[in-house]
Design a protein around this nucleic acid. Structure first.
Lengths: 191, 191
DNA sequence: CGCCGAGTTGAACTGAATCAAGAAACGTGG
DNA sequence: CCACGTTTCTTGATTCAGTTCAACTCGGCG
């Protein structure tokens, strides 16, 4: 069994018994990957969920030849190409470490086995998906009818570390704007 | 017990035993509401998930004094103000029937009880959330870096009934554009 | 009929993209 | 530790997609 603590709120809320905790912890594998490491290739099937202990990752894809950052996962959160993971089909999205990153991975197969054996882990999975929906809704709202400056303010408020740790170009595409626009907003050019 | 068939794929996949099916079916209540009926008031807590049997609904909110349509739920799909339902907190989003609508409602309390009593229903809940994520991701992708015309094509391809059954202004805000823009795209004005 | 909300069409305006140079910052090898 | 090339970021000028404002048309309904 791994010397493994799972600090995420979802895990704390799940209140697992000793046996379940053990089975769950055993299913996760630690990985240390360097900056730039590709955890999931664009166009491949995403067979794992990753929990970031230290470092950060981005989910990205190519759209009309340009690199689009779809999601950024910081410490204590999960990284996954969610549609691929859930459907088992390939997806254009890949996952890349943006810093040297320590993470814990669990495969879909193992997770589904745990769901069947331990209903409380199925509950954990449901809460994880629910939390994902809430986050996606927030992100969607930012994109639906707000200005570039508004989206910048939103990320400044909710996750300012992103702006320090992620290259400007990637943050810009994450926010759905051109890099030049983000540069100008950040400089305070009348925006 | 209701004479109740639940035609959604998620339900079929769940493979419930007779006892569970009964408990699950009993938890849902049928409602018939007229066009324009407000199922959830904007600013209120959404305490139910609705399954649309016939008719359609929209989830909407006011942003800077203008009405924004956030989601449209057709037959055989669910309508819910998801963040409010999951967090139990009020949300700006409300839900309105856009046609005379027959739907089935289940309360959060009853659903959580079922989750605890019937693990297979918890699985159903997990799959429902997962399906929701996949749909939101698709919607998000449409909004993130595509043109107004591209978003129109996307809805034309995936749910053309929306364009026939929902007033243009609501479809426009659903697609994140001004009503005039949608009108012009639809007319084929060079877009 | 005549009103009213919904949709259309036109013209002007604007936020953000694009195109194009430079200026910093970064890392790699000498 | 510096020099070099490469990538990232900034700044300016121009263009363009889509909004806004305004006028007009159409269809439904008292």
């Amino acid at each position: 069994m791994n010397a493994f603590t799972f600090p995420h709120a979802l895990m704390r809320d799940a209140r697992l018994d000793a046996d379940t905790t053990r089975a769950f912890a055993d299913a996760w594998t630690q990985q240390n990957v360097p900056k730039g490491y590709i955890l999931v290739k664009p166009g491949a099937i995403c067979r794992h969920i990753y929990f970031i202990e230290r470092g950060l990752t981005r989910t990205f894809y190519l759209k009309d030849g340009r690199d689009v950052t779809d999601w950024i996962s910081l410490e204590e959160t999960f990284a996954v190409s969610i549609v691929s993971f859930l459907t088992g089909a390939p997806d254009i999205r890949g996952i890349e470490a943006l810093e040297p990153t320590t993470l814990w991975a669990i495969s879909r197969d193992l997770l589904e086995g745990l769901y069947t054996q331990h209903p409380v882990i199925e509950r954990f999975g449901r809460m994880l998906m629910s939390e994902g929906i809430v986050q996606m809704q927030r992100r969607f709202d930012d994109l639906h009818f707000s200005t570039a400056a508004g989206r910048y303010r939103s990320v400044m408020k909710n996750a300012p570390q992103i702006l320090q740790r992620v290259p400007l170009g990637m943050v810009a595409s994450y926010l759905g704007m051109a890099p030049e626009t983000l540069s100008r907003i950040r400089a305070g050019d009348s925006f």
